[in-house]
Design a protein around this nucleic acid. Structure first.
Lengths: 200, 200, 200, 200
DNA sequence: AATGAATGAGTCTTCATTCAT
DNA sequence: GATGAATGAAGACTCATTCAT
């Protein structure tokens, strides 16, 4: 009877919350529909009333994250009154903070893209690619202006630093020493410093 | 009848190779024993003659990677004639290169530690922790000597940069523009530069 | 498509009936889940909707018998207006009759206690032991009053006569010469006569 | 490496001994060939050199018991210088003692006749039937002479008392209070007393 | 005589999903 | 909107047996 999910939320949200928690904890394939409905305090039939399939649950979690991340990134990237360094710093610190704030969703998002149903996966991958490309372009722009070192391909730089983000869930603990803000600040610092042109 | 695995290897090696490829491609849970034995050109019973369980297959892959990585890292870390920067650079470039050289094994290793059978997992995690701690200590040492910036916790620095390593498999393609050596060099460069003390 | 089981019973009962028949006929280990569901006219998934495992099916059959036998025995044993001889006679005749009336269940019960899951087995054995002890005490009491011969240990006497009961299924045929009542009467007669004190 | 079987016996006997012990302990179906060869300190191929199949092992155990029991019973039954009561007493005491002396074989013999391969089973059943019929005839003869009560069918009497024999293995312990001789004596006593004509 | 690698049919069980109510 | 009984395909694993050496 243990309810890991707030009982006052609408049924659909309870299901999403339970699914996100369980997928993050043990993985998508290792979580059964039975476990999700039990955690959400709903029956099997109930789940299928709101979601077409187990895949649909996963898709919903992805959509939620993707929409939010794209919007926030674009907002900051559009702030042309800031330097490229400042914008990269702000974007990365922000995505780290919001990922920690929604750690279950974020980990599901980062680690199970390949499990999405093919057609949904294509869409998510496309939007994700655009996200990365926009960041890559910021880096490339800085490399042309001399603000950033230019001896490392911009795309690789983005891959590199987003790797760190994707693994947050394996070591970050909300009750640990560091706040989300601090981690965001540290990560962003490492990112921009790694792009500093050599002194010579 | 499609054989994705060299037919001249001993059966046990064919199985390990097939398992590694498939686990890396679609994940452990998403790969069935049937798929593995078909890829290896062996029967189901044959697999269970060499491995006690699907978990044992995963464990064998982990052991192979773990042993190699620890040995290589220690060798370089012990080279006290090199500066800390040089050693960190060499270690990271090396682990990147060897991970790319054994990309399937490496991705399985990095992404499915949590799926290992409990007792095996404990052992792997312990050795992995020692590995990280040794690297963290190198960073901390450099922070004390002033060789590295000291405003970011050493442990977080290690988590950060190994995140990039863990995600290699999601974007690196052997037939792409960059060789393993180049990626190793770039990654190591980003790592050591990110630790450069501020100029002020 | 051969249905050996009444089609009008609830699914759970059909499964129990089919399992009992097959376990009695060929043994627990020699009966497959597939055979049970085919005999019950149900699908495999259906069985697992009602029973957690093949063991659970066996346990359910045991519980049914155990509960009935204990209740009936206690009722008769409590009838202190009857002599010990009369009570032993009545108890044994009754258990023989009810075992024949539920011959499949009874044979499964008597012959496969050792196959029960450990924790269930412990409970069943404990209750069975109390059952035997109560009967043994009736015999011992009669040995002290002189109603029964006292040159043979009471516990051995019970083991002896219940052996006969346990093997009923190997020779009794409902369509044979003897009714359940007759067998019960004969068995009880042999039991009480074997306890008669010697004439000297 | 635990060898439960005397190492100095010929291989064939080691295998029979190991099989008998394991079949008696956990049942035929629950014992695997692997367990037998490990207990006997032999390889799988070795077993199949001496026995055609798992069934053949079981058959060999049955043959051993059957041959012995028939011979001993006939010897005593032929002793026409003894009364029917004396002969029945002697036969039953003897079969109890020899069953205890070879308890594993005996339990396998009594409890797994139905698992024999069909053609072997037919032969064993036929011989077993003759064995029972000869005993039944002794009882019937005594019923005609008035030495035994005649209100209970002779065949049922035999079924009854051999039931006790078949269950010996479930409660008899070699290290318990009673010797094989004592149990044989007690059992035979219960048998002949149960056949005593009524006093009236 | 003996080995042990290899087979393949068969076992129990899980699970996402459907549908009559 | 919601239930939960029922489905059937698929899963990991076991095991008696064979056969080249």
């Amino acid at each position: 009877m243990a309810r890991v999910t707030p009982a006052d939320l609408p049924v659909r949200d309870r299901l999403l919350h339970a699914a996100s928690t369980l997928f993050a904890e043990r993985g998508f394939a290792e979580t059964s529909i039975r476990e999700i409905v039990e955690a959400a305090g709903v029956t099997k039939g109930g789940l299928y009333h709101y979601f077409d399939s187990k895949d649909a649950l996963l898709s919903a979690i992805h959509d939620r994250m993707l929409t939010m991340q794209i919007a926030r990134m674009n907002t900051i990237a559009d702030a042309t009154d800031l330097s490229l360094t400042e914008r990269l710093h702000a974007i990365f610190a922000d995505v780290v903070e919001t990922s920690i704030a929604n750690l279950d969703d974020a980990m599901v998002f980062f680690q199970s893209m390949h499990l999405l149903a093919p057609e949904h996966q294509a869409r998510v991958r496309a939007e994700r690619r655009r996200y990365h490309e926009r960041l890559r372009d910021l880096v490339a722009e800085g490399q042309q202006t001399g603000e950033f070192r230019d001896d490392i391909p911009a795309a690789l730089v983005i891959h590199y630093h987003f790797g760190a983000l994707h693994r947050l869930g394996t070591w970050y603990r909300p009750d640990g020493r560091l706040t989300a803000e601090q981690v965001g600040e540290h990560f962003a610092e490492l990112l921009v410093r790694s792009l500093a042109p050599s002194n010579t």
